[in-house]
Simulated assay, not measured.
Amino acid sequence: MKKQAVLLAVLSVAGVASAQEVVKIGHAAAVTGPVAYFGKDTENGARMAIEALNARGVRIGGKPVRFQLMAEDDGGDPKQATTVAQKLVDARINGMVGHETSGTTIPASKIYHAAGIPQISPSSTSPKYTQQGFNTAFRVVANDVQLGQALGRYATAGMKAKRVAVVDDRTAYGQGLVTEFSRSLQQQGGSVVAREFTHDKATDFSAIITRIRASKPDLVFFGGMSATAGPMLRQMKQLGMNVRMMGGDGICSDEIHKLSGGTMQDEQVVCAEAGGVQGEARAGMDKFRADYKKRFGIDVQINAPYAYDAVMTMAEAMVKAGSAAPSRYLPVLAKIQYKGVTGPVAFDARGDIRDGTITLYTFKGGKRSLLAVTK
């Protein structure tokens, strides 16, 4: 009898487990290659959200569910991103968080849209992503228009720069950011005195730096990632070009100091992160950062809290809709109002974050130092 009771108990537990619906959340970013630290950052943030939801015991439509993260590596490559996107669609994910870069997010978004799967990017800033007219495309960070405007204003008013040389890495992100910054700079009375480009895997910038140096700029604006900006700073130093550099969230990581070979000077670099909180809301962000370090043993790079909020916002829409079916919760997601660790999450008609904030940083002692939170 005792054995039968134990067997019945085991079968009962197994029955509950089998009845529990699995909600699959996809995530894709570059977790290998030169910007793997960014990709792993957003993957970790998404994983923290999944773990928090499962610990909470979420019910959707009155039934208990278990969230599962399906993480893929897109290598930061647009072609690989579309392959990964199709793989996740075929696996019947309920929602997608990613991709990491604009260059991977934009081509992948077509595949998610064709399948009717909601997609929230925690880091892609190119305006083109949400200008495609896809009702499945959302982002929880400000776009390049907002970033470029804020950086242009700060370059002229805060850094007193009038003559600026611009360089982009030919990615959708880099080109878009440089375009918006240049427009803002000129609106503020500044001028672009040199326009150069490289690519995101380049290592030799001597020819570019030599041409830029001849234009005698007050500032170099770089549209790209720290994996490229760091070596560029080192070579600027070697060629006797001691001017400041500005860029977006792609260079807004402590990794840039290491990648510059330690040649980056205090306050030489100013960057902007799409997002940011201030006042009482900072307590929630500080707690997230502390929890992240406890969980993974490393500091947040940039976008982990936005990936966390993307998953949480998606889950909240499912709960409100009473269903994890993409077609059922998508209309709810479009109108959601969620209070996240990164601040209020609500989307406009295109899927862009409403009232997106920008955080400006510089670097001191190789570490990011807050300058201001603005809009």
Rank of each mutant, 00 (worst) to 15 (best):
Q119S: 10
A28Q: 11
G340M: 10
T130E: 01
N143R: 05
G103R: 01
S12I: 14
M48Y: 01
S124A: 15
M232F: 11
R295H: 08
R59S: 15
S12F: 15
P326I: 15
G148W: 01
R328N: 14
Q80L: 13
I93G: 03
F363S: 02
A9L: 13
F221R: 10
K367Q: 15
A321V: 10
R163I: 13
R244F: 06
G133R: 00
L233S: 03
V220N: 11
A49N: 09
G158I: 04
V178M: 05
A46M: 10
G250Q: 06
V319G: 06
A214D: 07
V140R: 03
F221H: 14
Q188N: 05
M70F: 11
C271Q: 04
D73N: 12
A283V: 06
V84K: 02
V311C: 01
G95C: 02
V319S: 11
A49P: 00
A155W: 00
Y112I: 11
Q131P: 04
D355E: 12
G279V: 12
V141Q: 03
A334E: 11
K375E: 13
G45E: 03
I302H: 09
L360K: 08
A14H: 03
N54R: 02
D218G: 08
A115C: 10
I60D: 04
V166D: 06
V277Q: 07
D168R: 02
S323E: 12
G275F: 03
A36N: 01
M314K: 08
A17N: 06
I353R: 04
K375G: 09
A17Q: 09
S126F: 00
V65M: 12
D348G: 08
G148K: 01
A155R: 00
V145H: 02
H113T: 15
C252K: 03
R163F: 12
R328W: 14
V140F: 06
I93E: 05
G76C: 05
S260Q: 08
H27S: 14
A290G: 02
D200V: 11
K201M: 09
M314T: 15
F138C: 08
M312T: 12
A304T: 02
K162G: 14
K3I: 11
D169P: 02
D355F: 08
G250P: 04
P217Q: 11
V13G: 07
Q20P: 00
T228M: 05
K258C: 00
F347C: 05
P331L: 06
T198Q: 05
D286V: 01
M246N: 03
R295G: 07
K237T: 09
N94P: 06
K364T: 14
K320A: 09
Q175S: 14
R295D: 03
M314L: 15
F197E: 10
K375Y: 11
G75W: 13
G133L: 02
M241P: 00
E273M: 15
G248N: 05
S323Q: 13
A324G: 06
L371H: 07
R195K: 15
S327V: 13
L219N: 12
K294M: 01
S12D: 10
V65A: 08
V319P: 06
S260I: 08
Q268E: 07
M232V: 03
S124F: 07
V23D: 00
V58E: 14
A334W: 13
S226K: 00
T171K: 03
N242H: 07
K258Y: 02
N242T: 10
R350K: 15
A150S: 05
N303T: 14
G261I: 15
L371T: 12
A307H: 03
D266Q: 01
A272P: 01
S124V: 10
G276D: 03
